[in-house]
Design a binder for these strands. Structure first.
Lengths: 219, 219
DNA sequence: ATAAAATACGAACGTTCGTGCTATTTATTT
DNA sequence: AAATAAATAGCACGAACGTTCGTATTTTAT
């Protein structure tokens, strides 16, 4: 056999079986929750192991490094986000209903406290926005994905004639997103009980102000 | 059982002199910078001491605990915020100009990268929004302060007849704040170069749409 | 039933964390 | 110039950090 150059550092790669996958799943479910409260750096192998009543080393073996654990945690959070926000919103017909659905489902997500620290990605965004590395990059990519979904929804609403063609779709997407994130900030930090309903009012008012007569009625 | 409750812990209280205050100032200037990047928890006594080329213990003696260091750091950040945002904005006459000034000065602050991690309080807000304790409380109080300044500016603009009396001042304040924070998020995380100018467009458009004829012209 | 592979554990590694103590250097006051 | 007080350094601590390793316990494949 030719002495091929070894790949630099692939520490261990067993093929995971049913049991391993189950624990991995349990680990990551806890990880998402802890990270949404304490941040992805505040998430530690020790505290995670303690909460799951297993050994640090046993837990650690599932990932090989803390960075891998963080990345895996992000992917699980993304799946939750897709399941709870994007998917239900996409069920609504293209145009104004879907656009409203996207932002409304996000508000429902944070209201339901699916992540016990509020919104995983809001927290992760601000935690990693000044850091560099693969974790930052992954978070940024997912958030770009989200903004693209929002922007595309606006453009579809324009194609459907629900919103005038003159509206700047990117700008509207950012406006809506900003208001929603601001509401979450206010609810989470200032314990502002009216935050989410106020956000709904603001967004609905905005959407109504640019809706064409052809647009389906908003709630 | 011993009788009296001891005062919780006042570890050392020398009266600070000129030199001590100077070092303290230097420490906190670095602390604000580090914290705006790595967070108030990511800020460590060791890294701070290393950056200032002094001993951990010598540095630590200025504060007595990490929490005190965090609180002191927050106060310095607040002063910077007041100096760079609130004060210049208040120089403008009451009403629409001052309201615009507040949000515009904030945008200038983050554009200038006065904090090398972007906006200290955005980062701190999301870092501590799910934690409890005096640090959280102080951050929340300062942010409440800020939202009150914004809201009062709207109300003054209404009293001055620049904005119609029917406008919900709280709602408008949150709308503007959300858009600004969203822009910062986008610039910081997604490296969106147009974020701030887009935010200015959105806010100006909004303000123009509710401005009365009596309102001074906006930029 | 047995071999092999996947999973988990316990103990330990070197570092860094926050935080004390004690000394020493530097500044102020007499 | 001596006495005093403040500022900083040195050193050590226990705990927690991420990580590695050897070993025991499962579970799967032969």
């Amino acid at each position: 056999m030719p002495a091929v150059a070894r790949s630099p550092r692939k520490p261990r790669t067993p093929r995971p079986q049913a049991r391993g996958l189950r624990t991995r799943e349990a680990i990551l479910a806890s990880a998402v929750d802890i990270a949404s409260v304490d941040g992805l750096d505040g998430l530690t192998v020790g505290s995670l192991a303690a909460q799951l009543r297993m050994s640090k080393s046993g837990l650690f073996a599932h990932f090989g490094s803390k960075e891998e654990l963080q990345l895996a945690t992000i992917e699980v959070a993304r799946q939750i986000f897709i399941t709870q926000v994007t998917r239900p919103a996409i069920a609504a017909p293209r145009g104004m209903p879907r656009l409203w659905g996207l932002i409304n489902q996000w508000l429902i997500l944070v209201e339901r406290r699916v992540f016990s620290g509020g919104c995983f990605f809001s927290a992760a965004s601000f935690e990693f926005d000044s850091k560099r590395g693969v974790v930052h990059d992954r978070i940024a990519a997912i958030m770009r994905e989200w903004m693209d979904v929002l922007t595309r929804a606006v453009e579809q609403a324009q194609k459907a004639g629900h919103i005038g063609a003159k509206v700047n779709s990117t700008r509207l997407a950012y406006e809506i997103h900003g208001v929603a994130m601001g509401a979450h900030w206010s609810h989470q930090l200032l314990d502002d009980k009216q935050a989410y309903s106020r956000a709904r009012s603001i967004v609905l008012e905005k959407l109504r102000s640019i809706a064409t007569p052809a647009s389906p009625r908003l709630p």
